[in-house]
Amino acid sequence: MISPIGWIIIWIGVAFDILGTIGLVRFPDVYNRLQASTKCVTLGTFGIMVGIFLLKGFTPMGIKALICGVFLLLTSPVAAHALMKGSLHFGTKLWKGTVVDKYGEDKLGGEQIDKNG
């Protein structure tokens, strides 16, 4: 009974991974792409790990998969945050459709919105 549930969760995870990757191609600038890839890939990969745990149970492989999933939940937002702050400080412009940029106003002396691209 537990095995089909595990497979279903794994396939949901794979589907979210694919959606995140499509978002990486379709969205216009670094910041929106990070949004899509971080959220979808975190839940997708976490789903795959939980699915493996359900398939394998309390074996060394299952426990390792579960611990990897928890580490992923803790570290992936931090990595995305570091990438985002890095590109803001590097001077990557925001997409032209951006409506507000408080960070640029407060810290970088003016909105960093790209008028042409």
């Binding site: 979210f16 978002g23 899509a36 959220k39 459709g97 951006t98 409506v99 507000v100 940029d101």
Partner: peptide, 17 residues
């Protein structure tokens, strides 16, 4: 995110608040 990615018009209005 799935909705925004798959929607043909890509409904986004981003900004930093």
């Amino acid at each position: 995110v799935a909705y925004r990615v798959l929607h043909p018009e890509r409904p986004i209005k981003p900004g930093i608040v």
